[in-house]
Design a protein around this nucleic acid. Structure first.
Lengths: 200, 200
DNA sequence: TTGACAAGTGACCTGCCGTTCACTATAATA
DNA sequence: TATTATAGTGAACGGCAGGTCACTTGTCAA
């Protein structure tokens, strides 16, 4: 085994932390899953907590480069159907991407004891999505696709129901299909209520 | 110390489990908080897991008797203002009642490893509130307070944003006031969008 | 060829975990 | 008063947790 051991430790730690939590994970199991012995871990990290901090650094950095900069904002859709399609693309990605799912789970489990996890959880679960949709809705209002209203309020009203269904999928993955159907139904409902043209 | 020790153990367990999780809680601290020594716990419960199961039994029973029966459904409001007032009453209760807050937190922390916690979490966070508002909105539509639409979809669209803000309060209690203001603003927005009469 | 270094090992340490058990104190019951 | 059940105690348990360390191995540069 080569130089990527540090990466593999982080990957496995994310897996185990997201399933059993930080306190419920031990170094023996973690390293054994990599075909190593627990003392080997200390060649790469100073402690268990060090792994946790490195993981959080990663998550924070990843979130920042992915959603932090304005140029990363998605393009404003050109039609109601394009808006629904974009929603479904995002939902599918965020529900099926193992990395993202594990990140959400670990933030869920550690949000009450770690301040950085707490802050990142709020971004992931609430403000991040809302800000993104605020931008999109402002654009759609300019294009005449949505009735004029407070884009931030609409974004909040749109992002949080979807977020609730994403959490449901994290909790009960067997309900994923049902949740995706519900997301689409809600998206269509939303367009029906807030849209300007009543096509399809 | 008397016969209510069992109750006090359960109460303290809920406190500690909701803060540090099941794995992050130990019997020594738990009993010490009650002025007892750890071995005393075993006069009341067979094991740590036994405490956990008893706690879950309680939570499930409490939820059932509180929200399970149809006669426990709240009355349908008679005006938009009454609806908003009811929402704020509910929100204040659920955000400030320590017992309820701890229940939500513990379900959040254990939802991925315990099947009963998983099921109860979905009820608490999603289906319970949604069903309640489905009933309320159906009644409000009958009374002509809401435009005719699918009450279940409206309930989902109303309950989940509020639920998201409740979770925010659990995570960052210092944002409680802001969250309550946001809930009221959202509630007014909702009435503006879905209501039939446009009075304040 | 040698030396230095990075990666991995296994034995060992300390400390805490949940749990058991023989015991005591108390208070109600017979 | 003697008996019995209940609640609480403290010492001890085996086990496993995170962590340290002297050591081996492999790689590569000097």
């Amino acid at each position: 085994m080569a130089k990527d051991t540090k990466e593999r430790i982080l990957a496995t730690a994310l897996e185990m932390f997201s399933q059993n939590g930080y306190a419920g994970t031990n170094i023996r199991e973690l390293t054994a899953a990599l075909g190593l012995v627990k003392s080997s871990m200390y060649k790469h990290f100073a402690s268990k907590e060090d792994i946790w901090n490195a993981l959080l650094d990663r998550m924070i950095a990843y979130y920042g480069e992915r959603f932090g900069s304005p140029e990363r904002l998605p393009p404003v859709p050109d039609s109601p159907e394009a808006f629904i399609a974009m929603t479904m693309r995002m939902a599918n990605l965020t529900i099926h991407d193992a990395q993202i799912v594990m990140t959400r789970k670990v933030l869920t489990l550690e949000q009450f004891r770690d301040d950085r996890a707490r802050a990142l959880a709020t971004k992931h679960f609430l403000t991040g999505l809302t800000e993104m949709f605020t931008h999109i809705f402002a654009g759609m209002m300019e294009k005449g696709l949505l009735r004029r209203d407070d884009p931030a309020m609409l974004a909040f009203a749109y992002a949080t129901p979807i977020s609730a269904l994403i959490h449901l999928c994290d909790r009960e993955p067997e309900k994923t299909d049902e949740a995706l159907r519900q997301i689409e139904a809600f998206s269509r409902h939303f367009i029906r209520v807030y849209g300007t043209t009543e096509n399809a």
